[in-house]
């Protein structure tokens, strides 16, 4: 007999009442029982951080938590970051600074950084580097990710907290259709070295 339990879980503001098998991790529940497939599994032992989500506002590894433990909890996932088809400042910064390539680790980094920026409105580069060391990326070499988090912090960490209300006001926001044609400043190494 499967050991199952009814849970009530709020994901990005939407309440779900479902029956879950106790051995399904929160990541399994989000991805396969509820269809929030933006949360990815990269190791299932808490090292890579691809599955990072916010649980009651704090970043956690959703592979190291059973779904049944999230009963009566609020979960935030990558799907909840944009609103009205607009990227929030953190998402914008990831694109502008080339903080993603294959995109698999990206949701984990976004949620990690979202939680981090809520606690640290004005972090130093060193603080960002250390916080972001929680997650693994195989494509970028991390530089774009660190620059993106610092940039988003500079544009107001608070805004990432309530992306829904405030992103629309952000000058940097662009909708999806525009994003292809936007030319951005390249982070040229030459420039950095000359500074």
């Amino acid at each position: 007999m499967k050991d199952t339990h009814p849970i009530e879980i709020t994901v990005n503001g939407r309440v779900h009442e479902i029956e879950v098998e106790s051995r399904r991790t929160l990541a399994d529940v989000l991805r396969h029982d509820l269809g929030y497939t933006g949360t990815h599994l990269g190791c299932e032992h808490g090292i890579c951080g691809a599955c990072t989500v916010l649980l009651d506002g704090l970043p956690v590894r959703s592979c190291l938590l059973f779904g049944v433990q999230a009963d009566e909890c609020e979960v935030e996932t990558v799907e909840g970051l944009e609103s009205d088809g607009r990227l929030n400042p953190l998402q914008e910064a990831f694109s502008a600074h080339h903080g993603l390539q294959c995109g698999f680790c990206t949701p984990g980094f976004l949620m990690l950084a979202t939680g981090f920026l809520r606690e640290n409105l004005d972090p130093t580069e060193e603080e960002v580097r250390e916080a972001v060391s929680s997650n693994l990326c195989r494509c970028t070499g991390y530089q774009g990710i660190i620059e993106a988090v610092l940039d988003a912090a500079g544009k107001g960490g608070e805004r990432t907290e309530t992306a829904a209300d405030e992103t629309a006001a952000s000058e940097t926001s662009r909708n999806q259709e525009e994003s292809v044609s936007v030319e951005d400043v390249s982070l040229s190494g030459a420039g950095e070295a000359n500074q």
Binding site: V78, L81, E82, L100, C102, P107, D184
Partner: peptide, 12 residues
């Protein structure tokens, strides 16, 4: 240019 691929990955 910003990448076409970014938006889908940034939004899940």
């Amino acid at each position: 240019m910003r990448r076409v691929e970014d938006v889908r990955h940034l939004t899940g």
